[in-house]
């Protein structure tokens, strides 16, 4: 037979108050096993309090070749930053 175990992406919240962060990936037969394996592979030293697993094929990623049209337009929009606006010196905090 031999059907390969699919690949899963592992996200771990290292402590409450922080977001889940991508830690790596692993192979597992299903989501439940992916969680169990993620515990052993990525949290042997108390690195986490919560784990998410997502099958890798379900992730849609942007293509770095399109980085120009995706991300460059934000570069010339300086008016989205507070430093763009002139304030009199008398205004200390705003």
């Amino acid at each position: 037979m031999s059907k390969n175990w699919p690949l899963w992406e592992i996200f771990v919240r290292s402590k409450n108050g922080l977001e889940h962060r991508h830690f790596g990936s692993l192979h597992a037969a299903d989501a439940e096993m992916a969680l169990e394996n993620a515990r052993d592979v990525y949290t042997r030293r108390n690195e986490g309090v919560s784990i998410w697993v997502v099958e890798s094929k379900n992730i849609t990623a942007s293509n770095p070749e399109h980085n120009g049209e995706l991300f460059e337009p934000a570069q010339d929009k300086v008016y989205r930053h507070p430093t763009f606006y002139d304030l009199p010196d008398e205004v200390k905090h705003m």
Binding site: N4, L7, G24, S25, L26, V41, R44
Partner: peptide
Amino acid sequence: LAKVQDEAGHGLYLYSACETLGVSRD
């Protein structure tokens, strides 16, 4: 035991990093 388990873990981190280059675990 913990050391040997770490080595299994290290192997797995590295295999999955390697798989990001489009080669399969198999």
